[in-house]
Design a protein around this nucleic acid. Structure first.
Lengths: 190, 190
DNA sequence: TCAATAAAAGACAATGTGTCCAATTGCTCA
DNA sequence: TGAGCAATTGGACACATTGTCTTTTATTGA
C-alpha cells in the first residue's frame, strides 16, 4: 500500500524532531535539552510535538526504536560466540554521529539502560544456547551477561569518546581478549 | 578547638539536607528530586538551602565527599590483586542505605562518574605496579582498567539492586571468577 | 542582656511543562 | 478545480521549579 500524503507529512515532522534532539544532545547532552529548544530547532510548532510524543523521553525512545531496528536489519548473523561485537562496532562507526549523541554525550541513564537491555538480550540468548543443558555454571548466567555487557559498553563508549582511534576489527579483538578467557574458564567452549 | 555553637547549628542543617536528599533519592531517584521537596523533607527554609549549597548537584557532591573519605578511612590494605574488591563489598553492605541511594536509584551520570573515577584510580595503581616494566600488554592498561571497573560496578549495582542476596565474600568470589582468568591470560600473574 | 550570626518566610522574575482550542495550511480525491 | 479532512500552527493557560532578594525571627556566645 502506497503511503498516503498525510503519512509522509507526519514522517517528515517526526524526523525533524528526532534530528533536532540529536543535534542538541550532541551540543549539550540529553538532560540540558528542553522541549522548547527542540521545537525551535526543528521549526515545528510546540503543539505538534505533543501531538506526536508524550515528552522528551518518548521522543528519545522513538529514536532508539529506529536504531534498534536498523541494527537488527544490518546485523549479519556472524558465527561464533559474542557474534554481536564486531557488527556493532561497525555499525557504531558507520553511525558514529548518532552513537555519540546517544552513548557519549550522556543520553543519561535513559539511554544507557536501553542500550544495556538491548545488548543484554543478545548476549543472554547466545550464552544460554551454548550452555550444556542441566549444567550449573559457577557464576549465574545473569551475572555473566551483566559482566560481558558492561564491559562491551565501556569499551564502546571509550572508543567513541576518543574519536575511534582503532578499526572495528581491532576493537573486537580487544573486547574478546578481555572477555573470552574468563568465559572459557567458566565453561563456555572456546 | 571546641566547635562553636554556630558551627554545630550549621552542621546540623547541612546534615538534615543531605539526609533528606538521600531519603528522596531512595524513593524516586536523583533526577526526580527537587530542591523544594528536599527542604520540605528536611524542614529547612528554602533560602537556607541556597545559603549552603549552590544547587542540588552541589549537595549531592558534598555527600560524595563524605563517602570518599569514609571509604579511604576504612579501607584495610588487603593483599593481592584486586585487593579493593572485598573491602568495598563489605563497606557497601555496612552502608547499604547510602550506597543504594547513590549507586542504584540513579545518582545519574554524576555519581556513576565519580564512582568510576575513584575505583579506576585504585585499579590503575594495582595493575600498573604488577606490570613487568617494559612489557607491552596485548591490551592497553587503560582499557583493562576500564573493563575491570565497569564489571565491578555492574556487579555492585546488581547486588544492591537485589537487596544483597549474597555475602560480600561470595560477591568477591564471583567478581574474581569473572575477571581473573582474563587478567591472567593477559599477563598478570595468577 | 545584647550584638552577631543563622535560619525562616515569602515575594520575585525566569523558565519550563503539558493541555487546550481556534485558525490556518496543505493534501487528496471526487 | 475545489470541498473536505487531517496535520500543523500559534498562543493562552495553569502549574511547577529555580535561584535571588529582602525582611523578620531565633539562637547563642560574650
Amino acid at each position: 500500500m502506497a503511503p498516503k500524503a498525510e503519512d509522509r507529512r507526519v514522517k517528515r515532522t517526526r524526523k525533524l524532531l528526532r534530528d533536532a534532539l540529536l543535534d542538541l544532545m550532541l551540543e549539550k547532552g540529553y538532560e540540558a535539552v528542553t522541549v522548547q529548544t527542540i521545537v525551535d530547532r526543528a521549526n515545528v510548532g510546540r503543539s505538534t510535538f505533543y501531538a506526536h510524543f508524550l515528552d522528551k523521553r518518548d521522543l528519545l525512545e522513538s529514536g532508539h526504536e529506529q536504531l534498534r531496528s536498523a541494527l537488527s536489519r544490518e546485523q549479519p548473523a556472524a558465527p561464533g560466540l559474542l557474534a554481536f561485537s564486531l557488527p556493532m562496532f561497525r555499525h557504531a562507526q558507520a553511525n558514529h554521529r548518532l552513537y555519540r549523541s546517544l552513548v557519549v554525550k550522556g543520553g543519561g541513564a535513559a539511554v544507557t539502560e536501553m542500550a544495556q537491555r538491548t545488548i543484554a538480550d543478545l548476549v543472554q540468548g547466545e550464552l544460554a544456547a551454548l550452555l550444556p543443558p542441566g549444567a550449573t555454571p559457577p557464576v549465574p548466567l545473569e551475572l555473566v551477561v551483566l559482566h560481558v555487557v558492561s564491559s562491551f559498553l565501556a569499551l564502546l563508549q571509550w572508543w567513541l569518546d576518543h574519536n575511534m582511534p582503532h578499526q572495528p576489527e581491532e576493537m573486537d579483538r580487544l573486547f574478546r581478549a578481555l572477555v573470552m578467557p574468563s568465559l572459557t574458564a567458566l565453561g563456555w567452549a572456546p
